[in-house]
Design a protein around this nucleic acid. Sequence first.
DNA 1: TAGATTGTTAATCGATTAACAATC
DNA 2: TAGATTGTTAATCGATTAACAATC
Lengths: 224, 224
Amino acid sequence: MKRVKVSNNVIRRLPRYLRKLDDLKESGISRISSFELGQQLGLTPSQIRQDFSCFGEFGQQGYGYNVAALRSEIASILGMDRGYRAILIGVGNIGHALMDNFSFSECGVDLVAAFDVKESLIGADFRGVPIYSSEYLAAFLEHNDIAIAVLAVPKEVAVDVTNLLAENGVEAIWNFTNIELTEPNSPIIVENIHFSDSLLSLSYFVSERMDEKSAKAARSEKQV
Amino acid sequence: MKRVKVSNNVIRRLPRYLRKLDDLKESGISRISSFELGQQLGLTPSQIRQDFSCFGEFGQQGYGYNVAALRSEIASILGMDRGYRAILIGVGNIGHALMDNFSFSECGVDLVAAFDVKESLIGADFRGVPIYSSEYLAAFLEHNDIAIAVLAVPKEVAVDVTNLLAENGVEAIWNFTNIELTEPNSPIIVENIHFSDSLLSLSYFVSERMDEKSAKAARSEKQV
DNA sequence: TAGATTGTTAATCGATTAACAATC
DNA sequence: TAGATTGTTAATCGATTAACAATC
């Protein structure tokens, strides 16, 4: 696989391609052109071909792309076949929901343990994932090769935990706390799920729509 | 407030500005320049001034921006003062976590009801929000002005529910199901929280980092 | 007043789109 | 072979950055 510097926009589109290809596979479609794929995703064929060409040549002139083959190329580009091991820190509401409902394995990630400070949780396990005391976090990291930490702790302790993780060789944090962990000088990778940022963007788009509507209404009022 | 066509990138930065300004307020800082704000957010001062200038003139030459005033301008741009009413569809794991933990009101959104099909949930309420039977969803929408629907139902019913919502005047969907709701011809606004897309991007970045490391290791191996 | 910093116009950079030769 | 569609180069478009006059 080529590994040139690929823009963020391209990377963010890869999971969407993956999802669409999974859908197509399920519908029994084994072959697709960049034109058709573009139609279905609301992208131009050019963009799709450009995106793929960052990583190699996956199509065939006159034919298009083989759905299954392309799917597996993208999965590999995303690192889904690398068996990254993850831990969850904080088995509160959201942490619990992730353990219970989210399929890490479908993303090729292996959730091996969870940590919490709450006595009543320690020793339990959900769907085969054990919950340990946060006390043992550092020791655990010493003995296990963990690439990804899912951070679902209260705001107040987020920064301390992050430092502990970074010091113990964790590569990346999947951040569910609503604070900005991305420090300029830290080498740790941070990917944020900011619920409130998302809802606020939504709120913006709704407001925009509402304003358009009332502007239109005001115009037609005038005409009458 | 101006309402020109504003790019998506700008809109996505607004919630970050808001969060930073809240932090500053809390730290007792009442005034900030675009230079300093840029430092703290990893953006150029130019970009920050350009972003704000989409909506008006919020600063003062030689002084900078008043933190509290700017904060409230951005809140208003995002529509946080419009009192949008929301409902939650699907009180499963993630729906429950949202009701229990997520502060809709901090985003200026009023969560007024939840809906589920599960008998044992119907009639209960969490933090003052009642849970009704999904049977009554359509009727409820007729009698209540709901701008936003939080969609946390199983994949299989997501499209049907979306159609029902669209037909009954809901403006926007905050989509927690892992499917592509964004139809080209539908006028409904969709904002996605795709957990797996996010984790897969993270997995990509980790892979990129790993490859860099091993490439570096291979190079220094050669030199020795 | 002098210094600081804005809002905005112009320049640069990067991403998307179009075009087309290569080829299955 | 003829038609279709790729991968890639060139053209366009949009977003970010730089520069600077205006002004607090």
